[in-house]
Nucleic acid binder design. Structure first.
Lengths: 231, 231
DNA sequence: CAAATATAATAGCAATACTATCATATATGA
DNA sequence: TCATATATGATAGTATTGCTATTATATTTG
């Protein structure tokens, strides 16, 4: 059986699903509708039964693709980080200076997300909201260690590793490159959420995207480097 | 009826509970045992039925104190931030220079937590682990806005506000004081979790507590201030 | 066209998140 | 001290959740 039903396809650890959802029309519908439904009702209220109703299919059929709703969430989040990794790879192509690479990558990681037309069944705008609101629920569990062994977080760890390497190119003596990056990525997500719901935990600045600016500035100052000149 | 059964008592928004757990022996036992149980099995697997068994009491009795396990979690987290606020107030008493105040406060906010003998029914060490692992579940919900209106996050917001003020004392032109503080607090929590479970997302440095050092350094560099000289 | 495979329909089960009812302690204050 | 209020306990019940099992019907493929 072919594993690819879509034209463009991203790498997702095959242990998060039972049957690859990209291998069938039903699978694609499951993914597409799950994004809509989780975004709409939140992960706690999301159930396979409701999802089945939504796509005029069957709870039992969905279980043939994903062992549980947690695994489906893992799938979505892994897909997101794989997509983001690719986005950064493309975005950094042809940029050589590590300072510029870092600045551009931070922008890509912390900016508001827009639709990417390459994946018809995935709404990256909504998926970003899901990652912001639900990602910590995918690893803040009693099963982290097991899930980690199975490689569920490989994409995210790889991305953090790549970013750290850029930082070390700029300042090879900086002691906390992974901390800095993971703090800024998760931090930016939280700040987006706070801006919507708990504004006293964040700051708004006229005429700029404060989340991006804060992240860039904090990163360059932390590693003691000068930001590239704006073209 | 007296609302205070304990000698020392911290302010927790009275809308998170139905009946104040500090007002009775059963209430105190509920709080104490819930910390142990959530820490042990995780919040998802935690139920009032199991808690009832644990304390040889009754599910229905627990519901007379807390509307749901989410409200109980809110209670624990609010208590934690109220406790932390007080810890910082004490810790900063007699320190005048804002740079020293900031440095000390960041240490208190990001260091590993030890038992505080003042509250017999609360194990702050375990509670800290719960806050690290479960706090985002208390606000990353579809009910945030409503909960926020009811004042459930007041303690945390107040703490972030106080810290921001210290930052502004040091550098009144810094644009992102709230962002910086909330990012560092949540970031430090995540880093503690990563160190245990996803070490590739963090950094370890011999001979120092890297979470504290990273946080202090990042804060002072971000606001463009020099760290106070070590005594 | 037969055989394999995927999906749908339905049912069922144990656990969860409550609510309700009634009985029995325990505390309080007149 | 006795009546009354209040707190707790015991038990049961309901709707929903998170699954699994079974059997029937499409659909694909060789």
């Amino acid at each position: 059986m072919q594993d690819s039903f879509t034209s463009f396809s991203l790498q997702v650890n095959n242990r998060v699903y039972i049957k690859n959802p990209e291998s069938s029309a039903l699978g694609l519908k499951i993914v597409e509708a799950s994004i809509n439904l989780i975004d709409k009702v939140g992960f706690e209220a999301f159930t396979f039964r409701k999802l089945g109703l939504e796509i005029h299919s069957n709870e039992a059929s969905i279980y043939r693709y994903f062992e549980s709703k947690y695994k489906l969430l893992m799938y979505l989040i892994s897909w997101y980080w794989s997509w983001m990794g690719q986005r950064i790879d493309f975005g950094l192509a042809n940029i050589l200076a590590p300072e510029e690479r870092l600045e551009k990558a931070i922008k890509l990681l912390t900016e508001d997300i827009e639709l990417d037309g390459n994946f018809e069944h995935i709404n990256e705008y909504k998926l970003n909201r899901i990652v912001i609101a639900e990602a910590s629920k995918s690893y803040m569990t009693k099963e982290v260690d097991q899930n980690n062994e199975e490689g569920f977080f490989a994409g995210y760890k790889q991305l953090v590793g790549q970013m750290s390497n850029i930082i070390l190119e700029i300042n090879s003596t900086y002691k906390y490159p992974h901390m800095l990056i993971s703090t800024l990525i998760e931090g930016a997500h939280h700040q987006r959420f706070f801006a919507q719901h708990l504004p006293r935990l964040t700051d708004e600045v006229n005429g700029e995207d404060a989340v991006i600016e804060f992240s860039k500035e904090a990163a360059f100052k932390a590693i003691g480097a000068r930001r590239p000149i704006n073209k």
